[in-house]
Simulated scan of single mutants.
Amino acid sequence: MNKQLLNELLTAVNEQITTENPKEAKTVYETLLTRGLDEKKAKEKIAKVIYQESINIMTTQEPFSRDRYVHNLLALLDDVEAEIEF
Rank of each mutant, 00 (worst) to 15 (best):
M1N: 06
M1I: 02
K3I: 08
K3C: 04
L5M: 08
N7Y: 06
E8Y: 04
E8L: 07
E8I: 05
L10Y: 09
N14R: 11
Q16N: 08
I17D: 01
T18N: 07
T19Y: 05
P22Q: 04
P22K: 06
K23P: 06
E24Y: 02
A25Q: 00
A25P: 01
K26L: 10
T27K: 11
V28T: 04
V28L: 10
Y29F: 15
T31H: 08
T31A: 13
L33Q: 14
T34S: 15
T34K: 15
R35Y: 11
G36A: 12
L37W: 12
E39Y: 10
E39C: 07
E39K: 15
K40Y: 11
K40E: 15
A42C: 13
I50V: 12
I50T: 10
Y51T: 02
E53K: 02
E53A: 03
E53I: 02
N56L: 13
I57P: 01
M58P: 00
M58W: 07
T60Y: 07
P63Q: 12
P63T: 08
S65V: 12
D67H: 10
R68W: 00
R68K: 06
R68S: 01
V70P: 00
N72V: 04
N72K: 14
N72D: 15
L73G: 01
L74E: 13
L77D: 07
V80N: 03
V80C: 04
V80Q: 04
E81G: 05
I84W: 03
I84V: 13
I84Y: 05
